[in-house]
Simulated assay, not measured.
Amino acid sequence: MESGEVGHTLTDLGETAARRALTAAGKTAGEVDLVVMGTATPDMLMPATVNLIADRLGIDGVPTFQLQSGCSGAVQALEIAGRLMSTGRYRTALVLGGDVSARHYDLRVDVRTLSPAEVVNVVLFGDGAGAAVLGVEPTADSVAVRTVFTRLTGLGREPGQVIRWFGLADRGHEQAAGAEDYKMIEESVPAMSEEILKELLDEAGWTSSEVDYLLPPQLSGRMTRKIVDRLGVPGATEVSCVSEVGNNGNALVFFQLERALAAMGRGERAVGIAVESSKWIKAGFALEKV
């Protein structure tokens, strides 16, 4: 940030996250037979960032998928990987999520000259990537995915967030690369989170009192507090990290998962909630340590 230069790409961050995830799972890249990634900010339109990461890892000859989505993209990637694995064709999936926001903003700008809406974007969003390894068979100390769902709910609703790509023909216009309606997000996300939690509990057959860990949406520290208070799961331990790592989009779910999985004991349960505010996608998952 001090230099005003971006020193990494999403491919760089994704490779690091993937290697850490494979090591933690005791797997090699050669054992991966499926790769799925969620991101709103790929390094390029082509080639897909997921394929650049796979290339660096030495993964080849397997299906790869890249999902274009905001903060729910990581959960969408988990759902797609799980559904494909349920066919019996795949045994080990590498699932990634991440975003790089810095290159969409002028890091050398004097924030004192910006409007409040512009300041939010510059100070709130950051860069990061995360990864997880899914398998079809329980292992010692493993966590089972009990349910995952994602659902578009944006019919007729204006986008809450926009990120634009510019080509040679339109590079000179004055539109901002990124913009968001933070007031709309502030009003919508807590209510959507409450709806997601109810649906997750219904699908899993759990009550709120049976939830041990809550992974709420990570918009900002203040918004996370507001959402957690509204969800009303007092017996659950909140797993949040946005105040430490910033809002790095699709990476945040993995940062939360890393903390939750390290803390969960046998039989304990966790629910995670994500909301994509560009065109309003609900997403969530429920986990249980077996």
Rank of each mutant, 00 (worst) to 15 (best):
residue 1 M to Y: 11
residue 7 G to H: 15
residue 9 T to L: 08
residue 10 L to V: 04
residue 10 L to G: 03
residue 12 D to L: 06
residue 12 D to G: 06
residue 15 E to A: 14
residue 22 L to W: 10
residue 24 A to E: 14
residue 24 A to D: 14
residue 29 A to C: 14
residue 36 V to P: 03
residue 38 G to R: 03
residue 42 P to R: 07
residue 44 M to D: 15
residue 48 A to P: 10
residue 49 T to N: 08
residue 49 T to G: 10
residue 53 I to C: 12
residue 55 D to V: 06
residue 58 G to N: 10
residue 61 G to T: 13
residue 66 Q to G: 14
residue 69 S to D: 08
residue 70 G to M: 10
residue 71 C to Y: 01
residue 72 S to T: 09
residue 74 A to K: 03
residue 75 V to T: 11
residue 76 Q to I: 00
residue 77 A to R: 02
residue 81 A to W: 03
residue 83 R to C: 09
residue 85 M to N: 08
residue 92 T to L: 09
residue 94 L to W: 09
residue 96 L to Q: 06
residue 100 V to G: 06
residue 105 Y to C: 11
residue 106 D to W: 13
residue 114 L to E: 05
residue 118 E to A: 14
residue 121 N to L: 12
residue 135 G to V: 15
residue 137 E to N: 14
residue 139 T to Y: 13
residue 141 D to M: 09
residue 141 D to F: 12
residue 142 S to Q: 08
residue 147 T to S: 03
residue 150 T to F: 06
residue 155 L to F: 13
residue 157 R to L: 15
residue 159 P to G: 01
residue 161 Q to F: 15
residue 162 V to D: 05
residue 163 I to R: 04
residue 167 G to R: 05
residue 169 A to Y: 12
residue 174 E to G: 14
residue 176 A to K: 12
residue 178 G to W: 02
residue 180 E to G: 11
residue 183 K to D: 15
residue 184 M to S: 13
residue 184 M to P: 02
residue 187 E to H: 15
residue 188 S to D: 12
residue 192 M to G: 12
residue 192 M to H: 09
residue 204 A to S: 07
residue 205 G to N: 03
residue 208 S to V: 09
residue 208 S to N: 01
residue 209 S to L: 08
residue 210 E to G: 05
residue 220 S to G: 03
residue 220 S to K: 05
residue 224 T to N: 12
residue 226 K to S: 07
residue 229 D to L: 11
residue 238 E to H: 01
residue 238 E to R: 09
residue 242 V to T: 10
residue 252 L to I: 15
residue 253 V to I: 13
residue 257 L to I: 05
residue 257 L to E: 05
residue 259 R to H: 14
residue 261 L to V: 11
residue 262 A to Y: 03
residue 267 G to I: 04
residue 281 I to L: 04
residue 282 K to Q: 10
residue 283 A to S: 08
residue 284 G to M: 00
